[in-house]
């Protein structure tokens, strides 16, 4: 029998998930930034700022942003690493990379490299980066364990991994409000602003299927990282896991 995995709340053939995820992001790419602002009421910017503040990235560093999409983190990292540093924005999806390139050009940034790559098989040498980040990307990856091992491989000793992702809400009251919001309003926003209810239904569902804070922390440690801590943001709606390769 074929192996299955989840795609939102659906069980699908494991081989098919990547293609289905691609369909979602092909469909949302053009409206992705607008929808991010609408759905999170701008809060995703604060979450991303916190990620950058936690990164310890400094001038001259080499940074890889995986599943970087439209480039929010890459733009901020570029400023931090200065002219001697290097930032690579990678994503599996060419439509998202296309939007990312446009976005960076609009910000006057031309010295970020774009690499189309699956997080599960990164085309970079071992021990290359001072920091690897993945924001709101990991939950879409089919084999998360493989992807985490790849992130460990490409980081230098003493390099930092940052995973920003939706997570498990700490407070029951907030969880109820959040459930109402994400299963009723988000797909409707998707329909209204992007004419695409299904993709936003998937996004809401995929958040619930993603491992909770402690589970993800253990997965990160299992991938070879020696240290991993997480910090809940907005009551655990989102968590930032920070790990170190020692």
């Amino acid at each position: 029998m074929a192996k299955t995995t989840h795609f939102g709340y659906k069980e699908v053939d494991i081989e098919k998930k990547q293609g289905l995820v691609k369909g979602v992001f092909d469909s949302v790419a053009g409206k992705y930034d607008l929808m991010n602002d609408v759905m999170s009421m701008g809060t995703h910017r604060l979450w991303k700022n916190y990620t950058i503040a936690s990164s310890n990235v400094k001038e001259g560093d080499h940074v890889l942003d995986i599943a970087g999409g439209t480039g929010d983190l890459a733009i901020k990292f570029r400023k931090k690493v200065g002219p001697k540093g290097k930032v690579i924005l990678s994503d599996i999806n060419d439509s998202m990379l296309f939007e990312g390139r446009k976005n960076l050009l609009n910000h006057g940034i031309i010295d970020v490299d774009f690499v189309q790559a699956n997080a599960e098989s990164l085309p970079f040498e071992d021990n290359t980066f001072d920091c690897v980040s993945i924001a709101f990307g990991l939950r879409n990856v089919t084999h998360k364990d493989l992807a985490l091992k790849q992130m460990h491989r490409v980081l230098k000793k003493g390099g930092t991994l940052l995973i920003l992702e939706f997570s498990k809400v700490e407070n029951q009251m907030l969880e109820k409000i959040y459930d109402l919001y994400s299963f009723n309003l988000i797909p409707k926003f998707g329909e209204f602003f992007a004419n695409d209810e299904d993709s936003y239904q998937y996004l809401a569902e995929s958040i619930r299927r993603h491992p909770d804070q402690e589970t993800l922390k253990n997965m990160v440690l299992d991938a070879g990282f020696e240290f991993c801590e997480y910090h809940n943001l907005t009551g655990g709606i989102v968590a930032l896991h920070k790990a170190i390769k020692a």
């Binding site: 310890n56 000793k157 003493g158 930092t160 240290f227 170190i244």
Partner: peptide, 10 residues
């Protein structure tokens, strides 16, 4: 913890 020319407070 000191690694990679920086300090981590863990």
């Amino acid at each position: 913890l000191c690694l990679n020319s920086r300090i981590f407070v863990i």
